[in-house]
């Protein structure tokens, strides 16, 4: 039995690396070895795959807009998640009195972290897109009606929906980080005459910073790989322009955008794959996996750093 359970661990490690190698091999084969790779040279080929005009017909060039879309989505989401999630965690663990309803809210938020993202997606569609979006249009964009501006799916609503998906994750991570701090820190800070907010922001937060970052990075990683809400609130197969602009605020919130995960889904279900399509799919998947892998690794190493620091001394 011992041998069996030990070999389970090896099996799982093998499966994980096997999947990665499969993607790597298919993508590499298509990029560098199969037809075209030899004539154009590797750099031209990469340039084509990444930066050429996105080809809607058979979609084998122009991954860059999807990468940019994924990044801007994650960025806008973090803009919402970071302040709101941290504030809620601070409230729950530092400000709120320890009553039964606070406990109830904490348990609910923990459990909301396990609620599937598609549920948030249907809420996003019903509330943000149809509800709020319609209101915004009726108030500010009356001249463009009946063509909806915000009353349709777009970057802002997708980011808000993903923010809701990930808020519980961030709140739980930061709350745990704050709860792990020893009470000495709080008492010492108050005893030295610091106000409540000085205690929180100058004494506790610096000590809890690794857990804040680890929670945020985990959320970003999850957001980058989460596609199901995007089917409802935002991503499109092809968007002629990036959701970025040169004018302030530099991000076009109402714009529809392309997304790596959505491209994969689309290639899987609706596109008829031309020859070499498998390599293209592997390419998208590989970039997505690498992106999320790097984010996850960062979070994991931060977490290990926290665990290693058993005592949290005041950095000041």
């Amino acid at each position: 039995m011992l041998g069996l359970s030990a070999s389970m661990v090896s099996t799982l490690l093998l499966i994980g690396s096997g999947l990665f190698v499969l993607l790597l091999a298919s993508a590499g084969d298509w990029l560098f070895l199969s037809s075209g790779g030899h004539e154009d040279g590797v750099l031209d080929r990469l340039n084509d795959v990444l930066f050429a005009k996105p080809n809607v017909e058979n979609g084998l060039t122009g991954l860059f807009p999807a990468i940019a879309g994924t990044f801007s989505l994650v960025m806008v989401m973090t803009l919402f998640v970071a302040p709101l999630g941290v504030a809620t965690a601070i409230y729950l663990s530092e400000y709120a009195k320890d009553t039964w309803y606070t406990k109830l809210i904490r348990i609910s938020i923990t459990n909301l972290a396990g609620v599937p993202a598609i549920i948030y997606g249907i809420f996003g569609l019903g509330f943000f897109v149809y509800g709020l979006g319609g209101q915004v249009d009726a108030l500010f964009y009356t001249d463009r009606l009946p063509r909806p501006t915000f009353g349709t799916t777009g970057l802002l609503w997708a980011a808000l929906t993903l923010a809701l998906v990930n808020l519980p994750v961030v709140i739980v991570a930061v709350t745990e980080g704050l709860d792990a701090l020893s009470n000495d820190l709080r008492e010492a800070s108050i005893a030295l005459g610091a106000t409540k907010s000085e205690t929180v922001f100058k004494a506790l937060m610096p000590a809890a910073l690794p857990s804040v970052f680890s929670g945020l990075i985990l959320a970003t990683a999850r957001a980058a790989g989460e596609v199901s809400p995007l089917l409802l609130v935002g991503a499109v197969k092809f968007s002629p322009s990036l959701p970025l602009s040169s004018r302030a605020p530099f991000i076009e919130f109402e714009q529809k955008f392309m997304h790596l995960g959505f491209q994969l889904f689309d290639a899987a279900l609706f596109a008829r794959l031309p020859p070499g399509g498998l390599g293209w799919v592997a390419c998208i998947a590989l970039i997505l996996v690498l992106l999320i892998g790097v984010l996850n690794l960062t979070a994991v190493s931060l977490r290990t750093a926290i665990l290693k620091r058993k005592t949290f001394e005041n950095p000041f």
Partner: peptide, 19 residues
């Protein structure tokens, strides 16, 4: 070992679906 297994989550479900 734990982070190594946790890395499986780096395969988002859409990638697993595509595989």
């Amino acid at each position: 070992v734990r982070p190594a297994i946790d890395m499986l989550t780096a395969f988002p479900t859409v990638v697993l679906g595509a595989i």
